[in-house]
Amino acid sequence: MSTNEPGAQNPYDPPSGGNEPGPPPGQPGGPPPEQPGGATHQPRAPMPPSGAPQSGQPQQQPASYASGGVPPSAHPAPGMQYPGQPYPKNSLGVWSLVLGILSWFLCPIIASIAAIVTGHMSRRATREGLADNGGLGLAGIILGWASLILSVVGIIIFVVAFGAAMNDPAFREFLNDPTAWPSLDSDY
């Protein structure tokens, strides 16, 4: 929790002042861990391979451990995220769904194609472990395809109906006789 009061300490900020705690016992730069009975445990140098002369110098640990780093086994597998980190490609699923919805109202052909493309990108990111909202991508794909198919069918119906009307002699006669057209000045 944080407060907006001036001078209030954010609980997530490191403590300030001269009483900063040092590293915990057993960590590099910290005091050695205490043993029962008040004795402290001094870390031993690893044993050299058999047949190698033993020196009084302790062997150095890898730099990642010596500086307090994380062991390689604690890193996530490629494509996986650390716990609590946001997924970098979750916005693709959201965009796919938004474009799929907009394709029913504005720019049906263009928005449908964009929804389908971003939906497939979202699904791929989900399979690779870079996103966790593949369902939104799937919804965008479905809405995009449905809108695209209905738009193409509507265009085909319009072209066929317009072609049939242009070939109808009664419609041609109506277009050529302006006196038959309704006017705004007439009283009904």
Rank of each mutant, 00 (worst) to 15 (best):
A45P: 01
L106R: 10
P108H: 01
M80P: 01
P78V: 09
I116L: 09
P108S: 05
L99P: 12
W104C: 15
A66F: 06
A114L: 13
I101K: 06
I101V: 13
I110H: 04
P48R: 04
P76S: 00
G56N: 10
S64G: 15
A77Y: 09
L97A: 12
P88G: 02
G56K: 05
M47W: 05
G69H: 00
L99K: 11
P71W: 13
G93T: 01
G69D: 00
I101R: 07
P86R: 12
L106M: 12
I116A: 10
P48F: 00
P108V: 00
L97K: 10
R44C: 07
I101F: 14
A77Q: 11
L106S: 10
A111Q: 11
M80S: 11
S103V: 03
I110Y: 05
M47H: 09
G84E: 06
P72G: 02
A45Q: 00
S96T: 11
P53W: 08
W95R: 10
V117I: 13
P62A: 07
S55F: 05
P46N: 10
A111K: 07
A111E: 09
A52R: 07
P48T: 01
V94Q: 11
S64F: 15
G68W: 01
W104N: 15
W104M: 14
Q85Y: 07
K89A: 10
A114M: 10
V98I: 15
S91F: 15
P88K: 02
A77I: 05
W104D: 09
P43G: 01
L102N: 10
S91L: 14
P71F: 13
V94E: 06
A77D: 11
S55P: 01
Y65T: 13
P43W: 01
G84L: 07
G68C: 01
Q59R: 12
I109C: 06
S103P: 03
G68Q: 02
Y87C: 02
F105E: 07
A114Y: 11
Q60C: 09
Q81R: 13
A115D: 02
P71S: 14
A115S: 12
I109Y: 12
G69L: 00
I110T: 07
N90M: 01
P58A: 05
F105M: 15
S112C: 03
P58Q: 02
P83F: 14
G68S: 02
Q81E: 08
G79P: 06
G51D: 00
M80W: 03
A114W: 12
